[in-house]
Design a protein around this nucleic acid. Structure first.
Lengths: 349, 349
DNA sequence: GGTTCAAGCTATACCGGTTTAGGTGTTGGG
DNA sequence: CCCAACACCTAAACCGGTATAGCTTGAACC
C-alpha cells in the first residue's frame, strides 16, 4: 500500500528532462524555457512531488528551520507569559515559508551555550533568536564564532553587528510613573526584574530616570528573578518599611498579581491604600480584582516581526533592525489617587 | 579561518580505514575488531568529528527530532500554563539523546492537520505528541495514514493502538468535590473546559460522578474554552443565578483566578461566601489572595515521561503506556466552610 | 557560408553519511 | 592439503537533491 514518495528523478523521467533541469525549474533559476518550466511544474504537481528536505539540507547546508533557545528553570517557565505568545507570532510568519521552529528549553548558561553549539554544528537551524539579553552576554561571541545568524529581541547595548527587534518599554515604565505621579503619589517603588537581563535593567533605569524627572526619590527598588514568589517577597519587604510606598511599579504581571495578593492579605485596599502597576498586559491581568493597570506590548506581533527579520537576515545576509510601537499604559482599576496621608493606610483624605 | 568540519572521509583517511568501517564503528555494528574500533573512535574524537545530521537523515530517513503541534489561537496561548512546563520536561529527556523538538502553534483544525502532513512529508520529525485529545479526533486517522509514530497525552478513549501517558485527573476533581462536601457545601458548580477536549470532558464527567455520589445535583456546569475571559463570564452567570452556588470548581487556574476576581468585585468574601478551587497548581495560584486551593499535577514530569515513551516507541516500534501519579488536591485558603445560609449571601432561609 | 554566441538542456560530480556485496586472510576440519 | 567458515575489511551503490561543466542547436553577424 505504502506507495513511495515521488522523487525528483520520477518527475524528470515523466517530464522527459534531466533532473538537473527539474531542480532549476523548481528554484526559479534561469536556463529553462518557459514552456518546459511550465510542463515540469505541472508534472510535479500531478505527481504530488515535494522535494525532500533532507536531501536539500545535505546539498545546500540549509535546514529550513529557526531556533529558539529559552533559558529558564522548569519551575519558573510557566510563570512567563511572554514566550507562548511570542512563539505563536513566530509560527505565523514561518508556516507560509515552509520553515519550522526548533525549540530548546535549557536550565542554565552552560547548557544554553552547548545548545547553540549543537544546533549550529548539526546544522539543525539556519538562524536563531536571541532572547533575554544580558550584560556582557557571552552568546554574542559564541554565535559569531559559529557563524550562526541571529536576531536579538531587544536592543543589545553596545553592539551594532546584530539586527534586533525592539519594543521600547522605557516609554511604558515612564508613563506608569507619570500616571502615578499625576495621581499624587510620591513614594513610588519598583519591583524590578533580573538586573542581569537587559530588559530588566532597562526597565529599571527608565524607572530611575522617570522618578528623577518628577523630582522623586528613585531608590526604592528591589531586584527579582521575575517570579511570582520573588514578587511577593519584594512586596512584603517594601510594605514592612517604616515608611512604605503608596504605589509599586512591577516589572511583570505575575509579580504584580502576587504583590496584589500580599497587599490584600495585609488588609490594604488597592488602589485606595496602594496602587499597583504590572507589565505585559497578560490575559489574566484584566480579570483579577481590581483589574490591573499594566503596560501592554504585543508579543505576538513581536514574534512575527522577529521571524521575518531573521528570515530576511538569513536570506540576504543583512536585515534592518525594527523598532516596534512602544509599550503603552493600559489604565485599569489597580491605580488610584494617593492616600492623602502618604504614610500608613488607615487614613482618609 | 573557517576550517571545514571534519567528515567521515577525513576520519577514515586518518585512521587508515574505509569510511564504511567508520560508520560501523560509530553505530556499534558488528564486523569491526575491537582494536580498530577503538582506534577509529579515538581518531574521531581527536578530529572532533560529529556525523552530519543532514547526511544521516538522508540515508536513514530519520530526523532525530520530535514534533509538538499545539492548536491554540494566539490570543489564548499565554493563558495556558501547561505547555511551557510540559515542553521543559520534554526537553530534559531530549537533550541527552541529541534530539530536538520541533514546535508548531497553529490556529485551527485545518492548519493542524496540514502541519502534521508537512512534518511527516518533510520527514521533519520521527514522531509526535498528541495533545488536547478530542472526541472523534480526526488526527488518529491522519497519523495512522502518515505512518507517524505518536504518543497521546491522556487516555484516548476507545483506542488501544496508540500508547499514551496519562495523569488521572478524575481523582483530583473528585477529591475537590469531596473536600467541598466535607466543608458542608451542597450547591457546587463546575466551570468546565472545552467539552470537545477529552480532558475537559473527563474532568466534567468526573465532577458529575462525584456529585452524584455525594447525592448532590451535578447540573450546575458551564462550558468554556479554558480562557480567563470565559471563566469570568461563567462565574457571573453562576452568581447571577437566583440560587447561586456556594462553591465553584474550575477546570483550570486562570479561570479560577478570574472567578475570584468576579466574586471580589461583587463584594463576596472568599471563602466565607464562596469557595473556589482551581486546577493545575500554577505558580501564581499560590500568590493570589486568598491563595487558591487547586489540583496539582506535574506537567514537567509528564513531558519527560511522554518524551521517553515516544522515543521508546520510535526506537523499538512499541511502547508501554504510562499512568502517572494522580493529580492531588492542594488545600489552601480559597476554600472554607459553606455559609450557614445556603442561599444568597445576604439572605436567610 | 562559416564563425560566434547565447539559450536550453544533459551528464555528472557532489553533499556525507549508510548499507550491501564482495574480497582477503586466517583458522579448523576432514 | 584442500576447502569451508568465519572475522575483518573495502569498494561502490545509494539516499534525493544541487551545482557545474560541457554539449546541441539555431539565429545573428560579417
Amino acid at each position: 500500500m505504502a506507495i513511495r514518495k515521488p522523487t525528483i528523478t520520477d518527475v524528470a523521467r515523466t517530464a522527459g528532462v534531466s533532473k538537473g533541469l527539474v531542480s532549476f525549474a523548481l528554484n526559479d533559476k534561469p536556463g529553462v524555457s518557459p514552456e518546459t518550466r511550465k510542463r515540469i511544474l505541472e508534472v510535479a504537481g500531478d505527481l504530488g512531488w515535494r522535494p525532500s528536505l533532507s536531501a536539500r539540507s545535505l546539498s545546500t547546508r540549509t535546514s529550513f528551520a529557526l531556533g529558539l533557545v529559552i533559558r529558564r528553570k522548569a519551575e519558573v517557565i510557566s510563570a512567563d507569559p511572554f514566550f507562548p505568545a511570542f512563539i505563536a507570532g513566530v509560527e505565523s510568519a514561518l508556516t507560509e515559508e515552509g520553515r519550522a521552529l526548533v525549540l530548546s528549553v535549557v536550565p542554565d548558561a552552560e547548557a544554553e551555550l552547548r545548545t547553540y553549539r549543537t544546533l549550529a554544528g548539526d546544522n539543525r537551524v539556519d538562524g536563531v533568536f536571541l532572547t533575554d539579553l544580558r550584560e556582557n552576554d557571552e552568546r554574542f561571541a559564541v554565535l559569531a564564532d559559529l557563524g550562526l545568524p541571529a536576531v536579538a529581541l531587544g536592543h543589545p547595548t553596545g553592539r551594532d553587528d546584530m539586527p534586533f527587534v525592539q519594543v521600547d518599554d522605557t516609554h511604558g515604565i515612564a508613563s506608569a510613573v507619570e500616571h502615578l505621579v499625576s495621581l499624587g503619589h510620591s513614594r513610588i517603588a519598583h519591583v524590578a526584574g533580573d538586573p542581569m537581563m537587559m530588559h530588566g535593567g532597562r526597565r529599571r533605569s527608565s524607572f530611575d530616570e522617570a522618578m528623577r524627572e518628577a523630582g522623586l526619590d528613585p531608590s526604592l527598588v528591589i531586584d527579582t528573578d521575575f517570579s511570582a514568589s520573588n514578587g511577593a517577597d519584594a512586596t512584603k519587604r517594601l510594605l514592612d518599611n517604616s515608611h512604605p510606598p503608596t504605589a509599586i511599579v512591577y516589572a511583570n504581571d505575575p509579580m504584580a498579581i502576587a504583590g496584589l495578593g500580599v497587599a490584600q492579605q495585609r488588609g490594604l485596599r488597592v488602589p485606595a491604600d496602594l496602587s499597583i502597576t504590572g507589565f505585559d498586559g497578560t490575559d489574566i491581568s484584566g480579570y483579577v480584582f481590581p483589574a490591573l493597570t499594566t503596560i501592554t506590548s504585543d508579543p505576538v506581533e513581536w514574534g512575527m516581526v522577529a521571524a521575518r527579520t531573521l528570515l530576511e537576515l538569513i536570506g540576504s545576509g543583512s536585515a534592518e533592525s525594527v523598532e516596534l510601537p512602544p509599550a503603552s499604559l493600559l489604565i485599569r482599576a489597580s491605580t488610584g489617587p494617593a492616600p492623602s496621608d502618604s504614610g500608613h493606610h488607615a487614613a482618609h483624605r
